[in-house]
Every structure is written in structure tokens, then in C-alpha cells.
Amino acid sequence: MRQGTSSVRTGGPNQSWYAAILQKYSIWVVLMLLVLGMGLLSDVFLTWGNIFNVLRQASIIGIVAVGMTFVIIGGGFDLSVGAVLAFSAIMSIQMQPVTPGRTALAVLLPLLVGVTTGTVNGFLVGFLRVNPFITTLGTQFVALGITLLYTNGQHVWVWNPDPVYAAIGGGFLGPVPIPVLIFAGVAALGHLVLSYTNFGQYLMATGANEGAAVLSGIRTLWIKVASFIIVGTTAALGGVVLGSRVKNLDPTAGIGYEFEIITAVVLGGTSLSGGRGSVLNTVAGVLILTLIANAMTLLNISHHYQLVIRGLILVGSVALDASSRRRTA
């Protein structure tokens, strides 16, 4: 079925299929080394409590990072996720989910907002061919502005929420926090769609070479719109989880989320030039980023240094992506 190493007659790297797989998922090796290193450094680290704590911290960013992976692979970019996430969280809380009916509203309405902003971003980028950075920079501020108008700039909160609503962000299934399960589900679904559906393949093709994709019969504009709808939806879902978790939120809470999300995706090896990336590696990127944050907290490194280090991680992984692209170009 697969040829491991047949006679090699082309000029390319003559690595075997298995070596290619290993290289593709090398980020997981980094993650494991990091886990081992942390385990040696700290007694608390490798306890179930801390592990689930790290995973729960990772889950909100992780959910959105899965969506972001789709957009970036398709050649797009979305800066508005942080603002959309905050708007969804605020809206979710403002629905006052104290009854099952209101809980349904508190979940569905924010998701609708996510789909809508994703559609708007997608049409601007896909059909009007506006630069995705500028488009989503704009929609980011629109979303933030609407959030502030909606809340009058005040905190929002909900007392005594419905138990179902409270469980979304704060519940457990056995020892596993519900947000972690949602993250795992979104990641599994994302991986399935990206790697095993024609949409996933068309998205990769669109990001890799849009002209060739069109000539192969792919409706690239719709594919791009769909990728923005996906990220908008995941941002909204992340918002619902956040709202349920904190139940008390400042309208500017979403600022900075997009930065961590994009860092995680790029760290996971998704190419900013599109066409290349993997949901599983994004998951590893999210975990590494959260682990480093967790480690820095355990090691009592101040928030200011943490910002510097995170910035360096983003720049470093972008530089790595650019240099690997130069080698293959």
C-alpha cells in the first residue's frame, strides 16, 4: 500500500515516510520534553490536580485556536476573535441563564453572533478581497465598541445560574473538567474535518495556491468564507465557556486573547502563508503555551516577564516558519 523507501530518483530529500511523520509531529516531542522537565523541577506539577488545572486553563484558548488554524491554513487571519469571545461571554451572561430556557438562549445567541461576525469577515476578505489583517482589526473594534455600548461599559454578572449553565465552564465529568471535554471534542472534530473531509483538503489547497485551487474546480471564495465562519463560531463557543466559568465579567476582558490564540497556532507549525497546518499540532501549541505560563507562575516569574517571554515565543515561531518556507521555496 505504502512504499517506504523505493528507489529514489528525484532530487528531493530522500527521507522515508516514517521520518516525515516524525518530523511532522515534532512539536509533540517538544511538549513531552517540557512535561518531563517540569515534572523534575516541581513536585506539584505532575499531580492530577495540576494537570487538569493546566488543561482547563488551556481549553478556552484551545477551542478558538482550532478555529484559527482553519482560517490561517486557508490563507486568512482573524484578529477579531478576542473581541468576539468577550462579546459572546458578556451576551451569554446578560441572558441571565437562571432557567433551562434562558440557558439555551445564553448558548445559542452568542453562537449566532459568532457565525454572523465570521460571515461578515469572510465576505469582506473573500469577496471584496480586503486584507484580512485590516478587516479583522476593524471588526475587532466594532465588536469591542458594541460590547461597551451593550453593557454601558459596566461589569455584567449572573447570580445563581442554572446548574446546566454553570457546568459548561465549571463542571466535571468524573475528574475531567467539562471545558477540557469541550476542547477535546472541538479538536477532534476539527482534526476530522481538516484531515478527512473534502472541505479540509480544499481549504489546504486554497491556502497553498489559490489559483491552482480555482483551476482544480474549488470554489475558493466560499471555502474562505466558511473558514471565517468556523473561527467566529469557535470564538463564540470560547466566550460561552468563559462566561459560564467566571459569571462576572468586565466588557474589555477579551483584549489580548487573539494574541495568545495566534501564538499557539503558529507555535503549532501552521504556516502564516497558508496551506500548511494541523489541528493536532495546534493542540500541542496550546498546551505548550499554557504549560509555560503555568511553569512561570509556579516559578514565581512576574506577569511582566511572562509577557516578554510570550512575545518572544510568537516572534520565534514566526521566524522559524519563515525560515522553513525559505528553504523549501
Binding site: 495556491n209 489559483g211 491552482a212 485551487a213 482544480s216
Partner: peptide, 22 residues
Amino acid sequence: KDQALFLGMSVRTNVNIARLFL
């Protein structure tokens, strides 16, 4: 190279992209 191939993608994908089996 510019208009037909997805250079970073496999031979398998490049052959199948216009007609994926589902």
C-alpha cells in the same frame, strides 16, 4: 508550478484534488 500544482502537498493529494473520493 504556479497555476496547477500544490508544491508543498503530496503526489497523492495533487492527483486526487479535482475528484476526492468520499
